[in-house]
Design a protein around this nucleic acid. Structure first.
Lengths: 208, 208
DNA sequence: GTCTATACTTCGATAGAC
DNA sequence: GTCTATCGAAGTATAGAC
């Protein structure tokens, strides 16, 4: 029986610094640039220390993913309980840095099983939290649930916000204004004070 | 003055085989796995030949991107001139292989200027072609252009189709059915025979 | 917990023969 | 157009001293 190698503690400051360094490099130069040497250099330690905390580089990616995911779940939780939950949720999901990391992890996830299942679980938690909030908001607004369900709206808003940020990062902006304004009108309509008769439907506004 | 290295012809069969090999590896194991050695092995040649056709690996990525982009533009052109252009366009943009490649190139584009501008130009061409078709379709359907413009619809459909395929690849399906059905109803409504009075608006269907 | 030293692999790229 | 041979850099990971 082989003796397992030592592994650093979960709450170590150095460990956190390594995760932070990995995320920064990933954002700046992509996941392929996250090597033990570069991570160590940025964190101000020597390369073998990376392997002391993270036996393989995949372990480091997984730790970075978990750390970022927990932070974003908490961030979204706050957004969904704020005064304008829809607006706050939209803003939370149009952050360029977060979207940049999402692109990197998505590319990674295509080829690493563990990353893939971790992202899947995290995505479903994000969506479930949105579902709860959107169900309440749509019901209060009196929106016809046979038209747009809270679930469909959650997926739709998530898709559009991510796509817009990704395209912007590429330098594509054709049509963004028109769609942004459309979404904006819809969110404003949903988030306005509910109509007098909350179970009857009003039409969303046609133009801004 | 240094003598420029020799470069293989554009229409060489070997060149095409190298591009094809690069795309396959990119799909299977990611862009980081596209090395001159692996590409050569898959194409059945020796590594230095890769550098004969593509002085740097980035040149190979760029060639692969252009090749794939032209193919997809042509594919979409056919879709948009088919009997059910909306349905065909939707199907063309929900192809898993193509979306997989898109993820890889998007991740690459975050860190390579040339890839980025090439993708940007290509995306705008795709969108412009959609814009033409959607303008005609929406007009024929008598849809209120102050609600959903052809441009906004183009961006929206593109965003959603890509997002659904990407999430499916990760194993996430929560909410997909509901949004898919919503889109489906909308496309069906748009693509049905125009109403008798083409300039008056009908409401889209509430449920399937 | 952090280091030095090092084994081993793979990479991009080039020179130059055929 | 394709090859052999090869350089130098960079990668992951481990052993073992401190």
């Amino acid at each position: 029986m082989t003796v397992p190698r030592r592994i650093g503690a979960e709450d170590s400051e150095t460990r956190q610094a390594l995760i932070q360094a990995a995320m920064e490099i990933m954002l700046e130069d992509g996941y392929a640039a996250v090597t033990s040497r570069r991570v160590a250099a940025r964190a101000g330690v020597k390369p073998p220390l990376v392997h002391y905390y993270f036996p393989s580089m995949d372990d480091l990616f997984l730790a970075a993913l978990r750390s970022g995911a927990e932070a974003h779940l908490e961030f979204q939780r706050k957004a969904l309980t704020s005064a304008e939950p829809l607006r706050a949720m939209w803003d939370a999901n149009t952050d360029p840095e977060r979207t940049g990391l999402a692109v990197e992890f998505m590319a990674l996830a295509r080829h690493r099983k563990e990353i893939r299942s971790e992202i899947a679980a995290y995505s479903e938690r994000l969506r479930e939290a949105q579902l709860t909030a959107l169900t309440l908001i749509l019901r209060a607004r009196g929106a016809d649930p046979s038209m747009v369900t809270p679930m469909a709206l959650s997926v739709l808003l998530g898709s559009v916000s991510r796509a817009l940020v990704m395209e912007s990062a590429l330098g594509v902006s054709l049509g963004h204004q028109e769609l942004t304004e459309l979404i904006d009108r819809y969110l404003t309509w949903l988030e306005a004070d509910p109509p007098a008769a909350p179970h009857e439907q009003e039409a969303p506004p046609a133009s801004g």
